[in-house]
Amino acid sequence: MSEARTLVEVEGLRRTFDVSRPWLTRMLAREPQRFLKAVDGVSFDIKAGETFAIVGESGSGKSTVARMVVGLLEATAGKVTIDRFEIRAGADSVEARRVRRRIQMIFQDPFASLNPRWRVGDIIAEPIIAFGMPKPAGGRDDAPSPEATRRRVGELLGLVGLDPVDARKYPHQFSGGQRQRIAIARALAAGPDFIACDEPTSALDVSVQAQILNLMRDLQEQLGLTFLFISHNLSVVRHMATRVGVMYLGKLVEIGNAAELFARPRHPYTRMLLDSVPDLSMVGKDRTPVAGEIPSPIDPPKGCAFHPRCKFAVDICRIDVPPLIDGVACHLAQDGRLPDLSS
C-alpha cells in the first residue's frame, strides 16, 4: 500500500464565503463586508486504493473541502488534481468530462440525495446514460442500449445487496439504510475510481451504520476504489481510514496514518476528540466531554485557533499561527515540549 501511486492531490485549498448583510443594510449601518474562511490552506494527497478520512467538529469545513475536491464548489484558491488533471467546478471540456466520470460522491442524507420523483432504476441509470458504460480503460463509449443499461442497473442493485426488481420502486419505499445502498449503487454506476463520502452513515440508525460501512469497505476492496471519507465520528473513522486528517476551523491540525494517530495523537485537539469517545478510550479511562465550543469561523482566534480551548497554550500560541510541519500544527508539539498525549 505504501508505494501506491498518488491519485488525488489537494494543494493549498482555500474557500471564503461572503456572509455580509445586504448592500443597502450594510451601507446604512456603516458595516464592512464580512467574510467567513470555511477552509484555509488545506493540503493533502490520497493514494490509490486508500481511505483518507477527515475528522473534525461541526463547522470545521469538512464538507466544504469535500465539495471542492469533487468539483461541486469553486475554490477561492488552491487546486485539486486527480491523476495530475486539475478538477475545476463548472469545467466542461472533453477532458473535464472524462475526469468527471472518475469522481463520485455519496451524501449524508439519503432522503435528500435521491430524487423522490424518480424510480430507483432511473436514478441509478442516470450516470450510465450520461457517461456510457464503464470500461476498464475508461473513456466514453457509445450510448448504451436500454437493455444493457437495465442489466447493469440490476447488477449494481445486486452488488449493494438489493434486489434487481427494486429498480421499479420509488425511493420513499425504502428504509434509510436501503436508500444509502441505492445512493452507493448510483455512485458506482459509471465506474468511478474516486468517491468522496460526506458523513455517509451519520443520518442512519446505529444498527445499520456498520452494515453500510462494511459494504463500502467490501466494495472498495472488490473495485479498487479510493475514498475521501468525511466524518465527525471517530469510531467510524477508525473503522474505515487508512490515513486521517484532523480539521479545526478550516485548517488541518494533524495528519497521519490512522493507526498511529489513534494510538499516539500529537495535537492537543486530536487528543481532546479521542477523549470524548467512550469506546476508543483505553481501559479504565473515563470519557471526557469535549471542552468549550468551536469559535465562529467569521472571527477566529488569533494565533493558534485552538488556543482558547487548549490547556497547554502558551504566549506564542496567542500570537503566531502554527504551520503544519511534519504532520502536526502545534508550537509545543513541534518543539517536543508537549507531554505524551497517548495515554
Binding site: G71, D92, R97, R100, R101, M105, S113, E126, A183, A190
Partner: peptide
Amino acid sequence: HAARLIGL
C-alpha cells in the same frame, strides 16, 4: 448536487 456531479 448529484446531478451536477455527472455534468448535467
